[in-house]
């Protein structure tokens, strides 16, 4: 029991790490942080990650409210918002998604599961009436649909008193909401569904290309369904692909 230990190489000393859980933990952390450093860190400093495009603007307050409902209801569990650079997807849904198109999304809604179709470019593909009827009862329009009915959304008035706070939180995450946008956020919810209102022009200056109309014509008050439809109808419509140069942004 008293053999003199031979001089051990570093290689042979792994017993030290393997028998000490704290050392092992530190070793594991160092090993995986290499992957993180190479795969994640560059995305924060590389300018080329997000394409330069025209037309992207932050969500209007009504669209944002709709987006919150989209997240709350888990629509992302069945719908992606990410058209991949694959032929069948581009032919069916339109131009592949750009990073720039989700740069104001916190959190993004790319999704990874498609029980239903991709929604990245659903904006203006169908009418508001269709969306309302479809949310109320998908099977009334698409008999074999497995999408659940969301009829309660058009019976629930939209709760938007905290809108300014939503905008403020997003501003801390880097979404360029101005003080004016935050101040006007409550009024802007109402303005967007009332194209004849006095604030309409100023609203359009704040949110260029926003769609001003009554999205849910069958209810006088603003419903959750209305906000959700306002959000769906703008998806994928901000970047004008006639002006966008795909060749300049090959990845």
């Amino acid at each position: 029991m008293s053999n003199p230990a031979p001089a051990q190489s570093l290689w042979a000393r792994h017993a030290k790490i393997e028998t000490n859980s704290i050392l092992l933990l530190i070793g594991i952390l160092i090993a995986i942080s290499f992957g993180g450093l190479i795969e994640i860190a560059p995305l924060f400093y590389l300018q080329s990650t997000v394409e330069k495009v025209e037309g992207m603007r932050p969500y209007t307050p009504l669209e944002l409210a709709g987006r919150n409902i989209y997240v709350r209801e888990g629509c992302y569990l069945c719908h992606s918002q990410m058209i991949r650079a694959l032929r069948d997807e581009v032919e069916r849904y339109g131009n592949y998604s750009l990073a720039a198109e989700s740069m104001y999304d916190h959190p993004f809604q790319w999704g990874s599961k498609r029980n239903g179709p991709d929604l990245a470019r659903i904006g203006e593909k169908y009418s508001d009436d269709w969306h309302l009827a479809h949310l109320n009862e998908p099977r009334a329009l698409v008999p074999q649909s497995i999408m659940p009915s969301y009829a309660f959304l058009s019976r629930t008035p939209l709760e938007y008193r905290a809108m300014a706070d939503h905008l403020r939180v997003l501003r801390t995450e880097g979404v360029p909401y101005s003080d004016e946008m935050i101040e006007q956020s409550l009024a802007d919810v109402r303005t967007q569904v009332d194209p004849d209102s006095a604030g309409a022009d100023a609203f359009l200056k704040r949110y260029p290309k926003a769609k001003l109309r009554k999205f849910d014509a069958s209810h006088r008050e603003i419903t959750e369904a209305e906000a959700l439809i306002a959000y769906l109808q703008m998806l994928g419509t901000l970047v004008d692909f006639k002006l966008y140069d795909n060749k300049a942004n090959l990845r």
Partner: peptide, 14 residues
């Protein structure tokens, strides 16, 4: 190679 270039070339040829 770029995946975006590849899909555009593929669609053009189709």
């Amino acid at each position: 190679y770029s995946s975006r270039g590849a899909v555009m070339a593929e669609i053009d040829s189709v």
